[in-house]
Design a protein around this nucleic acid. Structure first.
Length: 263
DNA sequence: ATCTATTCCTGGCTGC
DNA sequence: TGCAGCCAGGAATAGA
């Protein structure tokens, strides 16, 4: 599941091959990939020059000579460079120098063209690396809900998903159901430090590959080996050796150490 | 603002 | 081996 570190890795591996290149042809094979606007999407993309590629939250943004292409991979989406098309190829962008495939088994991922950054991207919250600890703590203090759903809320902070929220909360020793506004300044700042730390480590490891994720060159990430709670139900907590448990918070599978993360 | 529930989608898993 | 039923999950959406 591509979250910030996975998207960052994809952008890093893809950018040198697409920046400055032209889209010669765009074929949308599945209407779902373009949210039912296949023809319009193909027409908007064909002939466009790609100025730059960047990440915003979990979105991959192609800055074009006319408009922007925003890609969200959701669960199983992939952008693959010079790979053979397969059963799950949903779109093909033929560049002047390479072929870019959008593969997506579950078809939750979306490609969209717009003249300017679309509202769902424009209204994303701050990037984790741009936030200073004090601001993060103040933002937490001002909210009512529980901390996990807040961290998953892309308008509160952009780029975190289920894996890194669970990992960051574990590192900070905070229960996912803790009230955000009740966290002390010290605890809130340590949560910010945990978020930044786990994201940086994951980026350095090329992201986490649980089932589907690979970068633009088809390479798996390595950070799943360093997950401390995510997907480790029943295993000993690396800190206190209690069994890692799975609970449900805001309809999300949530992994935690019941001893290190008390309510 | 914040909560819950629902929808989307399908490979892979469990259990019979 | 086959098949039904369920699960995973990000984001949008509806309704409380």
């Amino acid at each position: 599941m591509p979250e910030l570190p996975e998207v960052a890795t994809i952008v890093r591996t893809l950018a040198p091959h697409v920046a400055g290149r032209r889209i010669i042809d765009a074929r949308i094979l599945s209407p779902l990939a373009a949210a039912g606007r296949s023809k319009a999407l193909a027409a908007h993309l064909t002939g466009r020059l790609i100025h730059a590629l960047r990440r915003r939250g979990k979105f991959i943004v192609f800055d074009l000579d006319d408009g922007v292409l925003c890609v969200h991979l959701r669960m199983t989406g992939k952008l693959l460079l010079d790979a053979p098309p397969g059963k799950f190829t949903r779109a093909i962008l033929e560049l002047d120098s390479a072929t870019l495939l959008f593969d997506d088994v579950r078809q939750f991922g979306r490609l969209s063209w717009s003249k300017a950054l679309p509202p769902n991207v424009a209204r994303l919250g701050p990037e984790p690396f741009d936030l200073v600890p004090r601001t993060f703590a103040e933002r937490l203090k001002a909210r009512r809900g529980r901390v996990k759903p807040l961290l998953l809320n892309q308008a509160f902070i952009a780029g975190l998903g289920n894996i890194y929220v669970d990992e960051a909360l574990f590192r900070a020793g905070i229960h996912p159901r803790a009230q955000a506004s009740h966290l002390s300044k010290r605890r809130a700042e340590s949560l910010h430090a945990a978020v930044v730390e786990v994201l940086a480590e994951a980026i350095a490891a090329g992201g986490s590959s649980i089932s589907d994720y690979v970068d633009a060159q088809g390479r798996s990430g390595g950070f799943q080996r360093f997950h401390r709670v995510y997907g480790r139900v029943g295993e000993p907590c690396p800190h206190c050796a209690s069994q890692i448990r799975r609970i449900v918070v805001a309809q999300r599978g949530t992994h935690l150490c019941p001893r290190c993360q008390r309510l």
